[in-house]
Amino acid sequence: MPAARESGKCFTCRKEMPWNKIKRCGRCKGPQYCSEQCQLADWPSHKRSCKRQTVWYDKYRACQDGSIHEGKLELITWPSPNPSDGTGWGACLLEEADDLKRKFETEFGGDENKFFKYWPQGFRWTCCGTDGGMNWGCDHHGTGKKACTCDFCKMGAPLPDKIYRERSATRYGLTLQRGPDPRSYNSVDAGISARMRGVLGLDL
């Protein structure tokens, strides 16, 4: 199970704050803010998409880095297109997939909301192909209302082939953007991201 959220960032000013201090839009429960002032400042942009909560996963849209998922949260019901992953229904190990599906149908009565709390990694966000158990950010690479917060967009670089062409259950059937998001580039953040990815041995 993913670690409990400890902090998050304001959707407007990106200020970091304890998770229990975050304020949300009272109507749609989506964006998160550090203050009423930041919520008001974001309203001209947010009002176009603001609506009363209509689907169970709206309450999970906000990410810890201050971004927000704008796609759908889907239960993964297909095997991974990458045989080396060895996953099936619910992004679970193939040999355990049938048992997990049975648990969903019997113990949870097919209720995706309840099942998500038990097995969030068995879902994916259609906006970025990220699994539901990862709550740090939405790497939409330019398709969202706010700038993408991924390292590559900050560096002004498109996703490398190794990442963009990755085959996984969470990306199966999605046409995702490669970026970069022109709104995201920041020379200071670009330098930090490049150095950190180099130190950690990640793709550049």
Rank of each mutant, 00 (worst) to 15 (best):
C25T: 09
Y33F: 08
A41D: 03
P31R: 03
Q39P: 01
E36H: 13
C28F: 03
K29T: 09
C38S: 11
C34E: 03
Q32R: 02
C28W: 01
R5T: 10
A41N: 04
G30V: 09
E16C: 07
K15Q: 09
K23I: 11
S7G: 11
R24L: 12
Q37T: 15
A4M: 08
A4T: 11
G26P: 13
D42P: 03
P18Y: 05
T12Y: 15
C34H: 00
W19P: 01
E36F: 12
E36Q: 15
W19K: 11
F11L: 05
M17R: 02
C10Q: 04
A3D: 13
S7K: 08
Q39A: 06
P18N: 05
C13P: 01
S35P: 01
F11H: 13
C28L: 02
C25R: 10
I22R: 07
T12W: 15
Q32D: 05
Q37M: 13
A3F: 14
L40I: 12
A4L: 03
P31N: 07
Q39K: 04
P31S: 13
E36T: 14
W43L: 01
N20M: 04
W43K: 05
K9E: 08
C28V: 04
K21N: 05
G8A: 12
S7L: 12
A41K: 08
N20G: 09
K21S: 00
C13H: 06
W19Q: 03
Q37L: 14
D42K: 11
R24P: 03
G30E: 02
A3Q: 15
K29L: 14
R14M: 10
D42S: 12
D42G: 08
S35G: 07
G26E: 10
A4P: 02
S35D: 06
Y33V: 08
Q39Y: 07
K29R: 14
C34G: 00
E36A: 15
N20Y: 07
A41I: 05
G30I: 05
T12A: 15
S35H: 04
N20V: 09
A3R: 13
C28E: 00
E36W: 11
G30C: 10
F11C: 10
K9A: 13
K29E: 13
G30F: 04
W43M: 06
K23F: 07
E16P: 01
C38V: 11
K23Y: 06
W43S: 06
R27K: 14
G8R: 15
G30S: 08
C34P: 00
E16S: 13
R14K: 15
K21F: 00
K21A: 02
M17I: 03
K21T: 04
E6G: 12
L40M: 14
R27Q: 11
C28I: 02
R14C: 14
G26A: 15
M17F: 06
L40S: 14
R14Y: 09
R24C: 13
K29Q: 13
C10R: 06
A4F: 01
G26K: 13
K21I: 01
L40Y: 10
D42E: 10
P31H: 08
G26H: 11
C34T: 01
K29D: 09
I22H: 06
I22D: 02
C10N: 07
Q37D: 14
